[in-house]
Write a protein that binds this DNA or RNA. Structure first.
Lengths: 294, 294
DNA sequence: AAACATGATGCCTTCCAGGTATCAAATGAT
DNA sequence: ATCATTTGATACCTGGAAGGCATCATGTTT
């Protein structure tokens, strides 16, 4: 195999059509350059330059080999640059998982911010429930998750992105909309309830069970996605507890009523990542976002 | 700049994920391979492989650098093959000039033959009068010409491709078409004549002047292209001497009558090339066609 | 705890690339 | 015609780099 030095030598001679000047350009003397070209021609197996004692000319084979040589040199010069960009996190690919509910609120601004901080990084988005995200982070299929607790603090590091209160979604025209005050547990104890799945939407389920007194007897549906929930409310199947950002969905036929109390029923969205970071783009992102990395 | 050996070493390690096995594959021992990779990483300016004492893994930068390295190696392996193909004339580009008249007869079969002998050679065709072809052959803008004498036998070598007789083109229904014998000079001494240009179509002009007695007083048009000539005949502007292959033009309203005599009025088409051949594709073509190369 | 696996390091030798001096051949000037 | 000039090729030498062998360092397995 030939060497890059030989290629550079050939390109210089092909451009100067003069061994002496080419050698000067390469900061070397003429004799080794002559030998370089001879060796290259031997390796390539074809005469590339036609030279008599007065002038140097490219052969036809030399003309096309010159193109290939230039392409090789360009590629060889670009490759380390690309590698360094990726190592520094300025380029590459970031795979982000998000829960459907996080899409309403934080995803848009976050992507906007990403394109400012790491503009050359491709972002791959996947809608996944929290459990699947954690799994992806473990296997390395995911770099960053936008999900809700609980998760293993040993394995994962996180940053609280967003905290919002729960509201009660009711069909338009429902009697409760006439109340001029926040909703209390008393108000919905008779209402048919659309509830979160205990397995698929464990975070919401746990939160509601923990902070809002309600009767399981009232539960008429069990679903895992906020969007489904709000749609069912619009269809007058019952009322539901949803995060405040669900108001952004813009579904007609639903109204959202504040809940009295105010503290315990707050839901959190975290950015979560594996403490064993291998993706330089993620590293750079976290550094630039100044997330605490305890 | 890194070397191809370093790239090959990196590719082997990246594929085996094991220095020992990679070294074996490369027919070398493990220590120099380790150093090779270290040097490559230093040159590239990024960690490409993450290695502890138990396993080897590609970093993100390493993954993309691996692709670039493979591309480089593939390109480097292909380049000499292409160069050799061109040097041997099995590939490349052949620029052929032809006169309009030669296009009727020989060009089709010749191109057919070219695609058999040198299938990977691109053929660039240009319609040029003989003088322009000779000029192109001198400057190297043309590799082969299909033209008519005269030309300098010192500079150019040639091969007679085709010899055909001249015929008289007359409008359909012309009285001469009723003759049951070949045409003699007597027959057209009163006919209006469409003549070849003395400068632009010197070969035909000289030939006609030399071999066919006619009166300049009868000349009604002077043109340089056979096609124009035949079209004017069809428009009943007169009669014209054209090579036999003009019958292949398929222009309606024209008939072609044989001329008595038979020998002197033959026209020749030659393949002509510069004796200083630089294009390997031409060299190969001539060899394979078994043209005499005195 | 001992044996094993695996990548890194130290040291030696060989080989190759580059430098200097010079040659060979063709051109051009006196 | 001869001599100086130009320019690529060759001869010979030297320094550095790459590869091999032996060994180390460290983590895993039995």
């Amino acid at each position: 195999m030939f060497t890059f030095d030989q290629l550079a030598g050939f390109i210089a001679v092909a451009e100067e059509l003069h061994f002496g000047r080419a050698a000067e350009r390469l900061n070397m003397t003429q004799p080794p350059l002559s030998r370089q070209i001879q060796k290259l021609e031997k390796i390539v197996g074809a005469e590339l330059l036609e030279r008599d004692n007065r002038k140097v000319e490219l052969t036809h084979a030399g003309q096309t080999f010159l193109e290939e040589a230039r392409r090789l040199m360009a590629l060889a010069e670009r490759a380390p640059v690309t590698a360094r960009r990726i190592a520094s996190g300025r380029s590459g690919m970031l795979r982000i998982g998000f829960t459907a509910a996080s899409g309403f609120s934080i995803l848009g601004p976050l992507l906007e911010e990403l394109s400012q901080i790491i503009p050359d990084v491709d972002v791959d988005l996947q809608e996944l429930v929290t459990g699947e995200q954690l799994n992806g982070l473990l296997t390395g299929e995911l770099d960053l998750g936008l999900a809700r607790p609980p998760f293993d603090k040993e394995t994962f590091d996180s940053h609280l992105l967003y905290r919002e209160s729960m509201v009660l979604a009711v069909p338009s025209g429902h009697p409760l909309t006439l109340l001029a005050r926040d909703i209390s547990p008393e108000d919905f104890k008779e209402e048919p309830l659309i509830m979160h799945s205990a397995t698929q939407a464990r975070y919401f389920y746990d939160l509601v069970v923990r902070t809002l007194p309600f009767s399981h007897a009232n539960v008429v549906h069990t679903v895992s996605q906020i969007l489904t929930m709000v749609s069912l409310v619009a269809a007058k199947r019952g009322v539901a507890f949803v995060p405040h950002s669900a108001t952004l969905l813009g579904i007609k036929g639903v109204e959202f009523l504040p809940l009295a109390g105010g503290d315990g029923e707050q839901v959190e969205l975290h950015a979560i990542w594996n403490r064993r970071i291998t993706n330089p783009a993620l590293e750079r992102l976290l550094r630039d976002l100044e997330f605490a990395m305890e």
